[in-house]
Amino acid sequence: MIRKGLVTSTLILIAIAFVLTVFSIYSLFSIKTVTVDPKLREISGIEFDKRKRLWAINDSGDGPILYMLNKDGSIAREVTVSNAKNVDWEDMTQNQFGHFFLGDFGNNNNDRRWLTIYKIENPIDIKTDTTEAEIIKFTYPQMGDGEIKPEDKNYDLEAFVEYKRNLYLFTKNRTKPFDGITKLYKVGDHAANFNAEFIGEFKTCTTLEKLCWITSAAISPNRKKLVLLDSTSLWLFENFEGDKFFSGDVSRIDLGIVTQKEAVTFYDDNTLVFTDEEFKGLVGGNVYEVKLDQVKRNVIKYAQQKDRKTTAK
């Protein structure tokens, strides 16, 4: 009887796991809009130009190239940044004037002491297939000069936004043991050498580092919503005070099955677009769309009313 009970329980658990997996897959692919050109198999940053056309960049291994996408995901145009290198391009953002910022600040081993951001005009204003960038350099004075201890390895970077003439950087945590904290730093938005200023921190989760790593960030056109992306979730921050982005309301949006989600941006104040990298031709390489007024949000924190419901739409 005991063995029969164990077999029955095991079968029930397998069935539940299967149903949850199917639902997780459906949750992600139900919001897919298009598959991108295979040339962008390591897509790491996206942004819309003034005409709402989507531009993308690849991770390290590609040249210093921006790609404009057609609505079917094919490549319509390429622009090379002639005075740039793609050591490890990880994200894109733009300011309210339409300038694009390209983050060459991937730091997997936490051994790059000086990191780079390239600032270019809005691609709509680039008339040829090349452009030159304004170069922003920064370092973390907190790193010091010696070898970084495993518990301090929180200087990798894959996410940033522009806000009120400054660039805000969200680290990709590589601490051992993993503590799930992304740190927020600030640098200027113009050509100079900066010491990154520490602003605050936020803990996503500690379940598994690859599920909790922050891989991209976006700020809404009206500058009232901030989003951070990881492999399973969008973290939405609203009603924050100034650049204290973690001070307001925080909610989490479940994105279903785990894929290597690497880039997010706002299409408008209510619409988010994100992408994932292709994995061995099996999954990923897609563009997805989320409407904030239609998606379920799991509320993590309300800044003012702590007695409100824990879930909302």
Rank of each mutant, 00 (worst) to 15 (best):
233 S>C: 09
151 E>N: 13
69 L>N: 00
153 K>T: 02
196 A>S: 13
252 R>K: 15
150 P>T: 14
276 D>S: 12
223 R>D: 02
172 K>M: 06
245 F>A: 00
238 E>T: 14
271 T>H: 06
197 E>V: 15
133 A>V: 04
91 D>C: 10
166 N>V: 09
188 G>Q: 10
19 V>D: 11
107 N>D: 14
62 D>M: 07
7 V>G: 06
267 Y>V: 04
293 D>C: 06
260 Q>I: 03
166 N>L: 02
175 T>F: 02
86 N>Q: 07
118 Y>W: 06
146 G>M: 06
256 G>Y: 03
229 L>D: 00
271 T>G: 08
110 N>Q: 12
293 D>Y: 06
100 F>C: 04
164 K>H: 14
166 N>W: 11
217 A>Q: 02
258 V>G: 03
220 S>P: 01
106 G>L: 05
130 T>P: 03
186 K>F: 07
206 T>F: 08
293 D>Q: 10
191 A>G: 13
102 L>V: 10
141 P>Y: 15
219 I>E: 00
58 N>A: 05
306 K>V: 13
257 I>S: 01
304 Q>W: 12
305 Q>C: 14
260 Q>T: 04
53 R>A: 03
306 K>L: 10
96 Q>M: 08
20 L>M: 12
99 H>W: 02
238 E>P: 06
72 D>I: 10
192 A>W: 13
271 T>R: 10
215 T>P: 04
60 S>G: 12
161 V>P: 00
46 I>L: 05
224 K>I: 03
217 A>P: 03
143 M>V: 14
185 Y>Q: 01
56 A>W: 01
76 A>D: 05
265 T>M: 01
179 D>V: 12
79 V>P: 01
4 K>M: 15
59 D>C: 02
113 R>Y: 11
145 D>Q: 14
199 I>E: 07
64 P>Y: 07
6 L>S: 09
300 I>T: 08
189 D>L: 06
27 S>N: 06
231 S>A: 13
241 E>R: 15
273 V>L: 09
234 L>E: 00
189 D>T: 08
160 F>W: 03
7 V>C: 07
44 S>C: 06
83 N>W: 06
208 L>Y: 14
300 I>G: 03
225 K>F: 02
34 V>A: 10
268 D>I: 11
188 G>A: 11
49 D>N: 12
305 Q>N: 15
85 K>L: 12
26 Y>F: 13
97 F>L: 12
313 K>A: 12
270 N>F: 08
190 H>Y: 12
135 I>T: 14
62 D>K: 13
109 N>Q: 13
235 W>P: 00
79 V>W: 03
21 T>L: 12
51 R>C: 02
43 I>Q: 00
38 P>I: 05
293 D>K: 11
108 N>K: 09
10 T>H: 13
259 T>Q: 04
277 E>D: 05
25 I>M: 09
